[in-house]
Amino acid sequence: MTVPLWYYLVLSGLIFLIGLVGVLVRRNIIIILLSIELMLNATNINFVAFSSYLGNLAGQVFVFFALTVAAAEVAVGLAIIIALYRHRSSINVDEFRLLKW
C-alpha cells in the first residue's frame, strides 16, 4: 500500500513553516539563508510528490529549475554577506541599523 499523498503535503508544509519561523526569528544571517533553503526544499518535496501522483513530469522539471535558482541565490547572497562583513565584523541582523527597518 503506497503512501497517501497528504502525508507528503503535511511533511512539506511542516518544513516550510519551520523555515519560515527560522527566517523571522533568527538573527544570524547564515541561519536565515539556511532557513530559506528549508523553504525551497519543502517546495521541492511538494513538486516531486505531486509529480509522482499526477503522473506528470512538469513538477520534476520545476524542481530542476528551483535548484538552479537556489544555487545562484546562494552565490549572490554570500557575496553580499562578504561585502558587508568587510565593513562590520558581524553578521547579526540587528546590528544593521543605519537604515531604519
Binding site: V25, R26, R27, I30, L34, L78, I91, N92
Partner: peptide, 27 residues
C-alpha cells in the same frame, strides 16, 4: 550533488572565512 556538494560547501566555506563567533540566538 548540488545541494550537499556545492551549496553547503559554499556556506561552510563562508562561515569559516568569516570566522563567526557564537552569539545571541533569537530576537
Amino acid at each position: 550533488i548540488i545541494y550537499a556538494g556545492a551549496i553547503l560547501v559554499l556556506y561552510l566555506f563562508v562561515v569559516m572565512l568569516l570566522n563567526l563567533k557564537r552569539e545571541e540566538r533569537f530576537h
